[in-house]
C-alpha cells in the first residue's frame, strides 16, 4: 500500500469514483473504551449504480448510511461524493426512511412541494411554475397524480412510501439513500414498489444506496450487493456483482440459472458463514 496523503483525482473520467468510502471506521466512546461499529470500510460506487447493503441487525448498515447522508462523521477515514468530502447532510443526498417521515398535516403534493421549494427557492412566478411542474412530474413518476391532494393518513403504506420516494427524487439528488424502504410493507405491496423503484431507477439512472434485509429484493434491484460481517467492528465481508441486464423482469430472473447460484451464495453468507447465533438479539 502506498501512503500518499490524499487520493489524487483519478485519471480516467470513466473510472471516476462517484461515491467513495475510504478506510472508514466509526466508533463511539464509552466508559469501557471505544465501541467500534464499523471498521475499515472501503467502497466505491459508480455514478448511476444501484448498490444494496445487506447484513444482520447490528452490523452497522444504518451507521454506514448515516455517514453517507452526513448525519454522522467517520471517526477515521473519509466519505466523499464527487471528490467532495461529506461533512454534513445536503440536498444532493436524499434519504428515504422505512417510516416514510411525511408531514401528516400536508397533502402528498404539499409534502413534495415543501422539499422542492426549499431546494430551488423560487423568486418569481416563472420559477414557481417550474417548481409546481417538478412536483407534478414526480407525482406522476410514482403514479400518484390522482392522490395528489390526499393527506398521508388517507394513503396506504405503499402510497406513502411512493410519496417519500417522489419527494426525495424531486430534489434531484445525486444519490438516493434508502433505509429499508419496503420493510414495513406487506409482501404484495413490497413487490409492487420494488418493480416501481426499479422502473424509476432504469429511467432516471440515479445512483442508489439501499439498505435491506431481503435477499430477493437485493438481487432483483441491485448491480452489486455489499454483504456486511457482524458487529461490533463490522466491515464489508463480500461484494456480489449481479450481472443481470436491465430492464429486469422478476419472472425472467428466476428463469436464469445464475439467479439460484447468486441467491444461494447470498444466503450462505448470511446463514452459514456469518450466521448470528440464536441468542443474539
Amino acid at each position: 500500500m502506498q501512503s500518499l496523503p490524499l487520493p489524487a483525482p483519478p485519471q480516467s473520467p470513466v473510472e471516476l469514483p462517484f461515491l467513495e468510502l475510504r478506510d472508514v471506521s466509526k466508533y463511539y466512546p464509552t466508559p469501557k473504551g471505544n465501541y467500534t461499529v464499523l471498521q475499515g470500510v472501503n467502497l466505491s460506487v459508480k455514478s448511476g449504480e444501484f448498490v444494496s447493503i445487506i447484513g444482520h441487525s447490528g452490523c452497522g448498515k444504518t451507521t454506514l448510511l448515516n455517514l453517507v447522508a452526513g448525519f454522522t462523521r467517520p471517526s477515521q477515514g473519509f466519505v466523499s461524493l464527487e471528490n467532495q468530502r461529506i461533512t454534513a447532510p445536503g440536498p444532493d443526498r436524499m434519504v428515504v426512511f422505512q417510516n416514510y417521515s411525511l408531514l401528516p398535516w400536508l397533502t402528498a403534493y404539499e409534502n413534495i412541494h415543501l422539499g422542492v421549494k426549499s431546494v430551488y427557492r423560487p423568486q418569481n412566478e416563472t420559477e414557481r411554475r417550474q417548481v409546481r411542474q417538478i412536483v407534478e412530474e414526480h407525482l406522476e413518476l410514482v403514479g400518484l397524480t390522482d392522490a395528489a391532494h390526499k393527506k398521508p393518513k388517507q394513503l396506504s403504506g405503499g402510497m406513502k412510501q411512493r410519496v417519500a420516494i417522489a419527494r426525495a427524487l424531486a430534489m434531484r439528488p445525486q444519490i438516493l439513500l434508502l433505509d429499508e424502504p419496503f420493510g414495513a410493507l406487506d409482501p404484495i405491496t413490497r413487490e409492487e414498489l420494488q418493480d416501481e423503484l426499479l422502473g424509476i431507477w432504469e429511467r432516471t439512472k440515479v445512483t442508489v444506496l439501499m439498505i435491506t434485509h431481503d435477499v430477493d429484493e437485493a438481487i432483483y434491484l441491485s448491480d452489486r450487493i455489499v454483504m456486511m460481517t457482524n458487529g461490533p467492528s463490522a466491515t464489508i465481508g463480500e461484494i456480489l456483482t449481479i450481472p443481470f441486464a436491465h430492464p429486469r423482469n422478476r419472472a425472467r430472473l428466476t428463469e436464469d440459472p445464475q439467479f439460484f447460484t447468486l441467491r444461494n451464495q447470498c444466503l450462505s453468507f448470511l446463514y452459514e458463514r456469518f450466521a448470528l447465533d440464536i441468542d443474539h438479539d
Binding site: 466512546p29 464509552t30 458487529g231
Partner: peptide
C-alpha cells in the same frame, strides 16, 4: 436497528 452505547454519566 441501532446499538445503544452507554454514555459516561
Amino acid at each position: 436497528m441501532t446499538t445503544t452505547i452507554p454514555l459516561p454519566q
